[in-house]
Nucleic acid binder design. Sequence first.
DNA 1: TTGGCAATGATACTCGTATGTCAATGGAAA
DNA 2: TTTCCATTGACATACGAGTATCATTGCCAA
Lengths: 339, 339
Amino acid sequence: MAENKNKKVTLKDVSKAAGLSLITVSRALRQPETVHEKTREKVQKTIEEIGYIPNLTARSLVSQRSDMIGVVVPILASSLFADFAQGISHILEPRKQQMLLAVSDWSPKKEEEAVRTFIARQADAIIVTGFSHTDATRKLLANFSGPVVEAWNLNKQVTDSVVGFDNYAAAVDMTRYLIDRGYEDIVMVGGHSEHNDQAADRTRGVMDTLRAAGRSVDESTVIEFENPATIDAGVNLMKNLMARKKRPDALFFLAELPAQGAMLWCQSNGVSVPDEVAIAGFGDLSMSSLLPVPLTTVQIRGRAIGLQSAQLVIDRLDGEVTEPAIHDIGYRLQIRQST
Amino acid sequence: MAENKNKKVTLKDVSKAAGLSLITVSRALRQPETVHEKTREKVQKTIEEIGYIPNLTARSLVSQRSDMIGVVVPILASSLFADFAQGISHILEPRKQQMLLAVSDWSPKKEEEAVRTFIARQADAIIVTGFSHTDATRKLLANFSGPVVEAWNLNKQVTDSVVGFDNYAAAVDMTRYLIDRGYEDIVMVGGHSEHNDQAADRTRGVMDTLRAAGRSVDESTVIEFENPATIDAGVNLMKNLMARKKRPDALFFLAELPAQGAMLWCQSNGVSVPDEVAIAGFGDLSMSSLLPVPLTTVQIRGRAIGLQSAQLVIDRLDGEVTEPAIHDIGYRLQIRQST
DNA sequence: TTGGCAATGATACTCGTATGTCAATGGAAA
DNA sequence: TTTCCATTGACATACGAGTATCATTGCCAA
């Protein structure tokens, strides 16, 4: 009984080839204690010979469980979110849970479409990034019967569970550190924060802290780098910024790669860090500690957020945990020589 | 008619709520030209009111098409493969194809399990990385009825289609360049290449080229950095290598991050590049051109490999193309100041 | 009024796996 | 021989969406 390309091998084929009833084959696979050992061996041998692979979509239709987890990330080509996704995969794989991945490009509409599709595909759980959703997405998630994790930030209004860290507080702490260090003209460099609650909270944390310290906050206090947040964006921004008459004495980048780009630009252009300008980043990517002048930054752990998000989902699906949870992964100011 | 959490809304619920037959609702959705406009509006209104989302697993069981594409990457926490995956997603998303993602950790056995699961879930196509598979995986892929893409390398023995570049030739070219540049003691720094045909081909390219140039090739010609191929691995390796009595005058790293780490270590430790030691990398990640001494490297395009792989799969599934194809994305020697 | 066509409904399936329930069979023990 | 139990099979479903085929109804034009 040879295998045929393009020919789906079903349970019916197995039962015919083994000379057993359909129900016996099914029992041998699903309730082996009810089937004689010799019969089970016969089933197994037949399965191997004709290459039967169970149809999991048919099975999930009956069992009402798909063993699929839907994950939306804003981008993948950022090592923080790539680490996050890999952390998720690390937990799902040994438990034979399949990741459905969607990349939203920071578009709430794309996130909505992804979530709707996960639901249509009967995903058992959904992991999304942040709290910026369309109303339709909120509704979908609220009515979704499985666990939902909103990751990468903390918030009071949550759908179900949260795994993240306080972006606002992290920005407050770093800004306060820069103020306490005596920097007088602190400029915040952010990216487009519409539909990005993480970026918006960071921005608000900086602004609130500057105001509370009696610092004037105007248009020149906030600069935007080009999106996406790449090293090149940081380089380009430094060119423009350093061409100004009035230069800040400290720059707080709300993302890590542009901060690295800024560091490298200074190095190449004879601008002394932190003597002429101090630089702080947000993310602590692996290069940052190894730069000629190591970068001060907010250290966050994308992989840990992924691990915890997936673990929380698994525990919920296995019934180990029944209540939604809030996991604060935390952050840390990693002070180095750039400030 | 309110939506209920935990209550699956089926087509039957829609037909009851709309006071129409099941078949009419189905027709309104699938063959709208056969249904009166007023009836269609009624169906649409009811769907919105009670929040019906079609069950795509049920649909795919009937239609024999899942609109899911299985993708195996060796790791995600490497920007080359993250770019690859994002490139794939970029093509799939607008066409409403769902990515199933698995991370193999360079394990052929994990790849096999992932492929088997994709087949069980009725994935329409499968994209894998490289040519290092278990026999079982080869058999699964050979018998798989949908398109298969092996990405990231070129090879004579292929399963179906290929999207990649010639790792062997790239390594040959870079080694030859180093030889022509007059470097006398070239050392190749690679990672563990078992189950990794890309790494194995790069290694073989270097060795063959050195031998053809009459260079002696022995144990000290090949060094391994710690896996995974991180910046830190490059830093650690440089510490050990530069503590040696006999130092090479050129290092060819077969991965980019360790090369960057090596560059940074030299910068911080007063080793002049390329005067004391030349350094070449493989991958041209974004930081490499911005280092204090910009890095010479083999430039490859992970995103383009992803875009092409996904496009090829879509064209095959849409019937635009019927034959397997080989797409050579190519590579380029990006010569900079480190050599 | 008759005929034709558009629209809708009823019936009976399909897809592949899983399972409840009752029946049949064979073997072992009392 | 009878009873009991393990094992296997038959039957009839379930899951939710899709569809072939025939029937029915209503409306409009000739």
